[in-house]
Design a protein around this nucleic acid. Structure first.
Lengths: 249, 249
DNA sequence: GCAGAAAAACTGGTCCAACCAGTTGACCAG
DNA sequence: CTGGTCAACTGGTTGGACCAGTTTTTCTGC
């Protein structure tokens, strides 16, 4: 890493009245973005902990917490006594990192990422609906139908509707009995950005179609797996922007 | 948390000739498993950092690193000055946590989880093949065909074949242009358990079918999206155990 | 001159002790 | 009972020291 005069200072303790962020969190975010942005290329060695501490004027313990998180995110590989190496996030990073990628300069934009997340949501959701139809208990099926009924009586506010929609889908994903789907679902809805930058008209086409929600619930209760899957895919695909994307790689 | 005499001691420094594990890593794993196993139920307060440090006879910084990782995994919620609360992992934890769930007593078993991961792999892989067919560049399509050719010449060793298979699928997932798929793919193959406990005969049915790999590559190169998706799904589904699962929830 | 061993100079890992900065809750005045 | 104050928590941060590995350099001894 170059040793040019450091222009980065972590946010001061009291930045007006804004909530202060822990230094290790700031440092983690900063290093993460540098890695995702390509400033710290794969294979390169991260500056030593003592060096980073000096560079940012913080204690080494704070640096260690940040690096430990980078390690957990599989962005770096640390070895006792040796150097800490930057990994190729495209090969190692997991889905939980999705929310952080947008900050990268060279990487995908927020729009691309939102679209990717929605695409994945449709894919997982459709299969979850299918599996739920096949595997869930009668009680769960009943709950899903009930929840669809409540959904129909949910206020016209889009935000409120979106929350209810997530809760309803959670029932289906849980009913699929697939823990991997459930965790991926959490990653997708838990990320701050995924649903943030979707055009309202697309989102509304999905959320406002109460009748489709009830129909899907009915398919699940009636154990019509194929119909449930098809409807779920169609419903979830409405929010996916149809932007043709440039060829990759 | 009860204050009964502590029966847990972290692995001593030199456990024979075994590689020692960092204290914070051990502590993280221990707390994670307690949370996933239900010993620390959602909503409960985690023992204070000083308390944990005393309980396990380690320094508070080690505890902090472990807790920080729990926080990143969205297993706990920490608030400055307040208590650290245990979250409901079924609602918050992300896909990266999958590899840790098996340790839970009450949770899904390793077999269930492996099956779930394979199911998800099939779902994502099929859609990735479809998108790759639609979106990837000619160069990428060529690479995939080439790689399939190389795959045909890969040694009969199943482990070696499995590695080549992962590398080949990575090309397809990258070609799909969907970063979320790529990260989920990393989570699935990066986890230690996912493919570990799959019956060899099932796995072999997928890996040894070299001809299907080449056919799929050909579909992608010929831009036959529907055929590619169908073949991919069929191929990836072979490794999924057909065990009927008990109803969930 | 050069391979190989010793040693110095790194690296990350752990600990102690103190203090700052928020939150909680008990306690006391009204 | 109400409301505010303050002590006793909680997590957040700092400094310095030392242990435990790795890497690089240096100095041997042939």
């Amino acid at each position: 890493m170059t040793s040019e005069p450091v222009a980065f200072t972590l946010i001061a303790m009291n930045e007006g009245l804004i909530r202060r962020e822990a230094v290790s969190d700031q440092l983690f975010a900063l290093l993460r973005d540098r890695i995702l942005g390509g400033e710290l290329p794969a294979g390169a060695a991260l500056t030593a902990e003592r060096g980073l501490a000096a560079e940012f004027g913080v204690n080494r313990h704070a640096v260690r917490e940040a690096v430990k998180r980078l390690q957990q995110a599989r962005l770096v590989e640390v070895s006792h006594g040796g150097r800490t190496l930057v990994l190729d996030w495209r090969h190692t990073a997991g889905l939980d990192l999705a929310m952080g990628i947008a900050a990268a300069d060279a990487g995908p934009t927020v729009e691309d990422l939102a679209r990717d997340a929605l695409e994945m949501r449709a894919c997982i959701g459709a299969d979850a609906a299918r599996l739920c139809t096949i595997r869930c208990s009668e009680d769960t099926a009943g709950e899903i139908v009930e929840a669809a009924g409540r959904y129909a009586r949910t206020g016209p506010d889009l935000t409120e509707l979106a929350d209810a929609d997530v809760a309803w889908w959670r029932l289906i994903v849980e009913g699929s009995g697939n823990v991997a789907y459930l965790l991926a679902f959490n990653s997708l809805v838990g990320g701050t950005l995924p649903v943030a930058d979707v055009p309202d008209d697309l989102r509304a086409a999905e959320l406002l179609d109460v009748e489709a929600h009830q129909r899907l619930a009915a398919h699940i209760a009636a154990r019509e797996a194929e119909a449930a899957e098809r409807l779920a895919r169609e419903l979830l695909s409405r929010s996916v922007p149809a932007t043709p994307r440039k060829a990759v790689r």
